[in-house]
Design a protein around this nucleic acid. Structure first.
Ligand SMILES: [Mn+2]
Ligand SMILES: [Mn+2]
Ligand SMILES: [Mn+2]
Ligand SMILES: [Mn+2]
Lengths: 152, 152
DNA sequence: TAGATAATTTAGCCAAGGCTAACTTTTGTA
DNA sequence: TACAAAAGTTAGCCTTGGCTAAATTATCTA
């Protein structure tokens, strides 16, 4: 607030944005919220399959901190979305599409966490913040994070 | 993925986290989503009051990219939450509490944007990403962003 | 100042993602 | 192998934050 800054323009003077541009930004955030459940689920399912061979609803529920019926409902939404394959009362597996999404999400998650760690943030905080931040990081920003990491 | 990294531990090896810690993280993200509407509204209302003297529902709706009835409903939720004061068919104003929240949110928003800009991200992208990211940045991370900015 | 236009509200709809209670199926064990 | 415990599902409820259509109120202008 007092110190002079050296970034192209005054850091702490908010820009007047065109209403449409601002609206577009909020629309993108709302979209991100719509994909968030799917992204977190496929990510967790992939991890469970990797470490346990299968992803069971109990374990999914425990790790998300929600009740089993919530998992049942969300899994069925993922099935409708073509991300997950599954037989009733059995473990959950990813479709090709689900695997591809999981790969991308895990990569993004790892980069965001690594970036926060590189800023000196502790592991627990980095993981917690990344869990929310990841869904709002554009490709451009993700690349900027990677560049920064490569130069650290 | 291929390059060796220099941060305390291997950057791209995901940590096995305790289920409870992970669940706690997701609970925090869900909480953040619950405060998000209020935070974005008081922030925008404060900006409109600053630039126009008052915050009218039409302008709020235009900038969020939602329809007027959505604004009416959300404003009335903010009133219930004690963040906003208002007479029917009139402009919206912030309570003391609302102003305090708005201040904090605007400051956080500015810091996140400035930080992204300092990474070389363009203005539009920085603004769009910040609009989502801001709600998931802990105090620790916000301080880390500030420290980084001071040293730029 | 009356009438038209613009802004706001109300009513009622919807989907997402939480929950509990109760039921069904699977799994483990005596 | 029967039955108890664990896991999963179903039904039905709730809140949030979107929407449209229609009614109401405020504002502008001829
Ligand atoms: Mn996440
Ligand atoms: Mn994640
Ligand atoms: Mn925001
Ligand atoms: Mn903001």
């Amino acid at each position: 607030m007092t110190k002079p800054q050296s970034h192209g323009r005054e850091t702490f003077e908010p820009v007047e944005r065109a209403p449409e541009a601002q609206a577009e930004g909020f629309a993108i955030v709302r979209q991100a919220h719509e994909s968030e459940m799917a992204e977190d689920y496929v990510e967790l399912i992939a991890e469970l399959i990797e470490t346990r061979g299968e992803a069971r609803p109990v374990d999914i529920a425990e790790r998300f901190g929600v009740k089993p019926p919530t998992v049942t409902k969300n899994i069925s939404r993922l099935r409708t979305a073509g991300l997950v394959r599954r037989e009733r009362y059995r473990a959950v597996f990813l479709t090709e599409e689900g695997q591809a999404l999981a790969e991308a999400c895990r990569r993004r998650h790892r980069i965001v966490v690594a970036f926060l760690l590189s800023l000196g943030i502790d592991e627990e905080t980095a993981e917690r913040d990344a869990e929310g931040i990841e869904h709002h990081v554009s490709d451009e920003t993700l690349e900027a994070f990677e560049r920064k990491l490569d130069r650290t």
